[in-house]
Simulated assay, not measured.
Amino acid sequence: MTDAFMGPPWQMDWRLDALSCRDGLPEQVRSMVDEVRAELVTAKDPYFRGIDADADLPVTMYVEPVRSTDPKGPHIMYFDNHRGWLVYTFTPRAQDPQITVEEVFWQ
């Protein structure tokens, strides 16, 4: 066990309903969701806080808080030029930081 704060790659967990939604998507969309997942688990700060913090994301993706009044709450990551999104929370615990996917949607 180490005393240092853990960094990326982060662990990711899925709510069962979000995972079943992801599994029900067409193959090309599932690959886009996997790209979103890769961006989240390797991000220095999965909430992309700060000016231009999401500048390294592909042009088809961006992140914002679900509610602007709750910047540490759930966030939404849009992908495929707003045709889909993934709602997630990040728990920055010292022992076991984790991203939890709550919802996946694509139209």
Rank of each mutant, 00 (worst) to 15 (best):
V59I: 11
F105E: 08
D13K: 08
L86C: 15
P26E: 04
A55T: 03
Y78S: 06
H75A: 00
R49I: 08
V41T: 13
M77G: 02
A4Y: 11
W14P: 03
F105N: 08
F48L: 08
P9M: 01
R49P: 00
I76P: 04
I76E: 07
Y47N: 11
W85D: 10
R67H: 11
W14A: 02
D80N: 04
I76N: 01
D23N: 15
S20H: 13
E35W: 01
D23T: 10
L57I: 03
L16F: 02
Q28I: 12
L40A: 14
V66L: 14
D45V: 09
E103T: 06
M32I: 09
L19I: 04
L40Y: 10
V101W: 10
E27M: 04
F48S: 09
C21F: 07
V33D: 07
Q28T: 11
V104I: 05
G73Y: 04
I51C: 07
A43F: 04
Y47L: 14
A43E: 05
P9L: 04
T69I: 12
I51R: 12
D13H: 09
F90H: 09
D13S: 10
P8T: 08
G73T: 05
F79W: 06
D54K: 08
D17I: 03
P46G: 05
A55S: 08
Q11H: 02
D52S: 13
L57T: 01
P74K: 12
E35L: 11
V104P: 00
S31A: 11
R93Y: 11
Q11V: 07
P74N: 11
E27Q: 10
D80Q: 03
R83F: 01
A4N: 09
E103D: 07
M1R: 11
S31C: 03
